[in-house]
Design a protein around this nucleic acid. Structure first.
Length: 213
DNA sequence: ATTTTCAAT
């Protein structure tokens, strides 16, 4: 586990971070997904411990599922197999992913989290994965995650800045925003907001459209 | 105007 955690903690090369987290509309060649995470563990009323690192998808395993595999090592006591009568530890995990989760990962995550009331998950995404079609399974998946209590947010400048400071081998260089970072982030945030609206709203909108209102 | 996606070759 020590070896594992060490390998998770290596900082991302600058170019790799920029290429994979760039929130461009047409993300050609981003055939990998990166996940930068911060794990906070509540050890007392006023004290926390931190763990952080990054992962990449490997061998056909999506990075979210890879993260779940490592969760036991990252979050000791999450499953409550400590001493008898000992309370389960509470964790909050924030991750920053270059793509939003696919439908299957969303379903698996939602199922998993429903059994883990002591685990809070916040997901920041740079780009939305296969969410163009109104009826895409990925859209359904994101709604399921929200229903499971996951906070899903599109990354803004401050999030990229934070990631740069935290996960990147930046060698004292400051984060420089790429062209259209802000516009792309706003566009994607609006899109995500529409996706996460309850179904009724879309139904109403369709009804209004039908009525010509 | 059109372009892409946790590859496959």
């Amino acid at each position: 586990y020590h070896l594992l955690l060490f390998s998770l903690s290596v900082l991302l090369p600058r170019k790799k971070f920029i290429f994979h987290y760039k929130n461009v509309r047409w993300a050609r060649g981003r055939n990998e997904t990166y996940l930068c995470f911060v794990v906070k563990r509540r050890v007392g009323p006023d004290s926390l411990t931190f763990d952080f690192g990054h992962l990449r998808n490997r061998n056909g395993c999506h990075v979210e599922m890879l993260f779940l595999r490592y969760l036991g090592a990252l979050c000791p006591g999450l499953w409550g197999y400590g001493a008898a009568g000992e309370r389960r530890l509470s964790y909050s995990i924030t991750w920053f992913c270059s793509w939003s989760p696919c439908a299957n990962c969303s379903i698996r995550l939602a199922q998993f989290l429903s059994q883990m009331p002591n685990l809070r998950l916040r997901i920041f995404v740079s780009r939305l994965y296969f969410c163009d079609m109104e009826d895409s399974r990925e859209r359904d998946g994101l709604r399921m995650l929200k229903k499971a209590g996951v906070q899903i947010t599109v990354m803004t400048y401050k999030d990229f800045f934070y990631c740069w400071q935290t996960f990147v081998a930046r060698k004292q260089s400051n984060f420089k925003a790429w062209d259209e970072l802000h516009q792309n982030s706003v566009r994607l945030a609006r899109k995500l907001h529409r996706i996460l609206q309850p179904f009724e709203t879309e139904d109403l909108r369709d009804a209004f459209k039908l009525l010509g209102l």
